[in-house]
Structure formats: structure tokens, C-alpha cells
């Protein structure tokens, strides 16, 4: 599924000429070039420095994201969050605080919810990662996604991918037996809009629905 979606996303980008993301990247590059000393521009045109640096500073990584296998070379310092967003262009997982305090970057690794901002991608060899993009089956949303829409479980939506990933895990772990327990086990996901009440409603509804998640 995810592979199809990625292809579709690419097609959309090609149709529209260039995406907003490409524009930001290009304009960033132009600014960098304008500010760089001439010798650096020469070096970067030949790309020798980059190639040498890449060879010395990257490590191989194989992992599976939403059922799609990836074999990559990454810098050891790359977080799983940055790998997902910047290299695999799966921007559904959000960067909130980038310091493990907000939960917006929550993904599942080998079936367990973790914070991708505090995980080094280089430590995820052969891991199976599921992000918000991997939940739906074609156009059919995951029951937790449906429940968030139905119960108004969000306002601005920025924390929502993390909330949904965490909510699914909360039920699977067996920590959704009461509103109090849900609140405690969802406390790692902050919502600045304050949609907590409706988020608990959504999780309760999915739990009581008893569907396989």
C-alpha cells in the first residue's frame, strides 16, 4: 500500500511541476550558495567533498517502513524521525519539540510505540517501522483514524499522527480500560489545542468497538 502511495505522491509532485517541499529545498540551496565563499562553491560543484564525507561518515541501514523495504546509507547521527521525514519523505510523522517531550513523533517500531526523535536510525537495523501513512488500507481509514474524525479528536491536527499511533498502542498494550488509565498512558502525547477529552472519547470508542487493530 505504502509503495503505491509514494508513487502516487511523486506523480502529484511531477504533475504540479514542483512541490512546496522542493521549493523550500531549492530556495535554501540558493541562499547557501549566495553566502558561501568561492572556494567552497567550486568544491561543492565538483561534489568531491561531499562524496568523500559521505564515504567516511555514513553507515548502511536496511529497514522496513510501512511494509516497504529500504536499503540506505545514513549518517549515524540521523534520527529515525529525520530519516522518515527528510529522506523517505514520509512527513505524516511530525517534529514537535524534537526532545522527547511532546509525543508528536510517535511511531511503532517492531510493534512498540516509541519516540522517533530520540531514536537513532542507525540503531534500527532490520526494524519494522509503522507510521501514520501505513495505517489505512487504500482509501479505507484505520478504525482509530475514523474515531478521531467522528469524535473531533483534534483541532489544528499537528499532534494527531502521534496521538493516533499512541492511541492504537495504548489499546494493544491493554492500557485503555478506563478514562483515567487512557489519560495516564496517553500522557506522553501533548495537545496544545486541548482536545484531550475527545481524544479519550475516540480511544474509548475504538476499545469498546473491539475491532482488531
Amino acid at each position: 500500500m505504502a509503495a503505491k502511495r509514494t508513487i502516487r505522491n511523486k506523480a502529484i509532485e511531477e504533475e504540479s511541476g514542483s512541490s512546496r517541499r522542493d521549493f523550500i529545498k531549492k530556495s535554501g540551496l540558493l541562499t547557501a550558495l549566495a553566502l558561501a565563499p568561492p572556494s567552497l562553491v567550486m568544491a561543492s560543484e565538483n561534489k568531491w567533498d561531499e562524496k568523500i564525507a559521505e564515504y567516511l561518515e555514513t553507515v548502511p541501514l536496511s529497514l522496513e517502513v510501512n511494509g516497504v523495504k529500504h536499503t540506505l546509507n545514513i549518517e549515524p547521527r540521523t534520527t529515525l524521525l529525520d530519516l522518515l521525514r527528510e529522506q523517505l519523505l514520509l512527513t505524516g510523522t511530525k517534529k514537535g519539540c524534537d526532545h522527547g517531550q511532546c509525543g508528536a513523533c510517535t511511531v511503532h517500531v517492531n510493534g512498540t510505540r516509541i519516540l522517533s526523535c530520540l531514536s537513532l536510525a542507525s540503531m534500527q537495523q532490520n526494524a519494522q517501522v509503522t507510521t501514520i501513512e501505513g495505517l489505512s488500507q487504500g482509501k479505507k481509514l484505520h478504525p482509530m483514524q475514523e474515531a478521531f474524525i467522528k469524535n473531533d479528536g483534534f483541532q489544528c491536527g499537528y499532534c494527531t499522527p502521534g496521538q493516533i499511533m499512541s492511541g492504537i498502542a495504548c489499546i494493544k498494550e491493554g492500557h485503555a480500560n478506563s478514562r483515567e488509565e487512557i489519560r495516564e498512558y496517553m500522557s506522553g502525547n501533548i495537545c496544545r489545542c486541548g482536545a484531550y477529552h475527545n481524544i479519550v472519547d475516540a480511544i474509548t470508542e475504538v476499545k469498546e468497538g473491539g475491532k482488531a487493530l
Partner: peptide, 9 residues
């Protein structure tokens, strides 16, 4: 301590 995501890690 912490949150469930952090306790898992």
C-alpha cells in the same frame, strides 16, 4: 516516570 513511549525505549 516518563511516558509509556519513553518507558518502552
Amino acid at each position: 516516570g516518563a511516558s509509556q513511549q519513553i518507558r518502552h525505549m
